[in-house]
Simulated scan of single mutants.
Amino acid sequence: MQLKHLFTEDRAVSPVIGVILMVAITVILAAVIGTFVLGLGDQVSETAPQASFSFDYNSTSGDLVITHDSGESITSANVEIVDPSGSATDWDDAANNGDGKITAGESDTITLSSPSSGDTVRVVWTSESGSTSSTLQKWTYNG
């Protein structure tokens, strides 16, 4: 082996590594740009709030009182109460302090007319953009 020949050799591994790095960078950039162009980046930050609700049903009047027990305060415009028939009612913020937020201790009442065993009432949160929704709590009638 000639030492002079070793230092004058033109072949190297660096072009192969360069091509691999360029392909990797291109794939990563395409993934990042694709997520934001398709709007998936906005949905990452739209997670459902953590809150706990309790339910108190009065069988004589048919009223179901839903109370926010603990957890994050929630914008009342984003919360609906879905009854067993599937119709949704906005959370009545005026019945509380009217500040636009549902905080611990605030409640809302809906009336159930002759519920059947297994009927479910859900408290549903929808994100500001309307692209994400989640059931925060549900209550099932066991009469």
Rank of each mutant, 00 (worst) to 15 (best):
R11N: 12
P84H: 04
S73V: 01
V37F: 11
K138Q: 06
G105F: 07
G18V: 01
D10Y: 03
D63L: 03
G100F: 01
I81F: 01
D108G: 15
A77R: 01
S85V: 06
S87G: 04
I25Q: 09
I33Q: 10
N58L: 05
K101F: 01
D63K: 12
Q2A: 14
E9Y: 05
K4Q: 10
S131G: 11
I20W: 07
V121T: 09
T103N: 14
T26N: 06
S117V: 05
T120V: 14
L64E: 09
S52F: 03
T120W: 04
V37E: 02
I110Y: 06
F53Q: 06
E106L: 11
S52T: 14
S14R: 08
T60Q: 13
V44C: 05
G41E: 05
T60K: 10
A51N: 01
T111P: 10
H68Q: 09
R11F: 08
K138V: 00
D119A: 15
G98I: 00
R122T: 01
A24C: 10
G143V: 00
D90N: 06
T120H: 08
I66T: 08
A30K: 10
L3N: 15
E46K: 05
F36R: 09
I81V: 13
S113R: 09
I28T: 12
L40H: 04
Q50C: 01
F7V: 09
E9F: 09
A30P: 05
G105L: 13
L40N: 08
V23F: 10
T140R: 15
D108N: 13
V19G: 14
L6A: 11
I20F: 13
V16L: 15
S107I: 01
S131C: 02
D56W: 00
D63N: 14
T120P: 06
A104V: 06
S45M: 11
N96T: 05
G39W: 03
L21Q: 04
V37S: 11
